[in-house]
Design a protein around this nucleic acid. Sequence first.
DNA 1: ATAGGGTTAG
Length: 569
Amino acid sequence: MLRSFQNPNLYSISKTHFKLLHYFLSNHLCTTTEPTQVPESPDLPNWVKFLDTKHPEAASSDEDFVIPSLAKWVEAPMLKDPRKAVKIPVVEIADTDIDIISKVLKNQHPSPENVAQVLSGIVLDLSNGLVERVLRRFSNEWVPAFGFFTWAKTQTNYRHAPEVYNFMVDILGKAEKFDIMWDLVVEMDQIGERYVSLDTMSKVMRRLARAGRYKEAIDAFRGIERFGVSKDVLSLNALMGALVKERSVELAHEVFLEFKESIPLNVSTFNVLIHGWCKYRNLDVARKTMEEMEKHKFKPDVFSYTSLIEAYCNDKDFRKVAEVLGEMKDKGCEPNAVTYTIIMHALGKAREITKALEIYEKMKMSGCIPDTSFYSSLIFLLGKAGRLKDVQEIVEDMEKQGIKLDVLAYNTLINIASTHSQEEVALKWLKKMEEDSCKPDLKTYAPLLKLFCRKKRMRVLCFLLDHMFKNDIGIEGGTYALLVRGLCMNGKLATACSFFEEMVLKGFAPKDSTYSMLIKELEGKSMQKEKKHIERLMLQARGQEITGNDSAMSNVEESNAQGPCVCVM
DNA sequence: ATAGGGTTAG
């Protein structure tokens, strides 16, 4: 374990990183004269000693790395200076407050009370920002979240802001701990100062509806004034929106009928309903709702028509889409960027690329300004059609107009470059993303990992895993499967095996196809010992699957919440 | 604020 002796928490390294590093050093430092003699245990003094005996120039022999323009960025310092090799994949945990709290919360606590008790020895300077970050990390684990939340209330010079309460209400609602959730709402109400807001009650109603407790969601609305929130069109719309999103247009409609006389409605009341009927494929009723809307002296607007268009797009009924566009024109209602995105995207998916681009032209002619999401869709469909030059042009256009790319746009660009084996381009986007402070997600890396497995670029692979790690991206089952398969296909069996092992140890069940592929390769290379080991691991994984689906799940969430930094070996 | 967001290789 890579650890400082004074402070055992100072260094840690993920198993993946160690194995890759180990693998890399075995292959690149230990040249033909000395076969693999890299220390088996990632023990800091040994490593330093080991690296000291090697020549720095040995480390920079660069046969698998030919991306000059990106070399400086990708090439971790460890490739140049072996001493730094120890430091690169090692994360310095500068025990910040959030780390201290996270470490305590990470232990499996039986109850929130227990969490609060364990925390009671700690004195910290809390802020609402810090509390929110902790809650975000544990937003899928109500016990540590609520224990921490309760403990925080006892700290001097700290008070939960209403937003923090709302966040906690939402976490409890997500975990379906509705009794505790209601207690918290009552507590907020008792503080006074309008702690309970429409925001709070919207979360309550949404979570109840999501849990299928529609009646309770509606009752929450009926009694909403008890908490000082008015029973007006905004709260009515929030209730109806919650019901529609959680698959019950019918109930939203009933609520609408019940309150339409007593509460003055607005346009979005109708649009919520229209969207609901469109979403659940009841276009006749959607149309009827539009008529009723007009009886109430509201004109159907771009929201109403876009809902209709989306429904027709889902049916690939582009004739109807054109009809609605005509109707909009007659009524003097201009389509907006969302409308155009939906149509263009649907045409692209239906492989009608020319028609999709016509929509883009039409949009420009109409003076409608494309936004980031529109361009993302456009890039996606151009990439899918293999029109890489056009993609490049679009990105330049965006830059000229000062429209920032978002994660989806970057992910799309990386995906396109990766599938076309444009290593340099793909990495260039990742770099640009970083410079742009755009936070990558798991989907950012998947195509890159696949590409560099295919290219057997172990150093870049190592770099990427490190990059993910630093960005708090938890590796999940699918990622391991991808690595194992990718490495397997290219004869990097030892590394494939170690990822397989890590996958199983983290509680992800490998797919049969992944397993059999690896076994077949190992047989082909007569690697009997490794084959046995993999077979044992697979048995273990199957056992886990039968006895505890839960444990696999909680492992996923844990690794997501904590990041992949796990001390190993 | 009520409408838009791509897969999993072969």
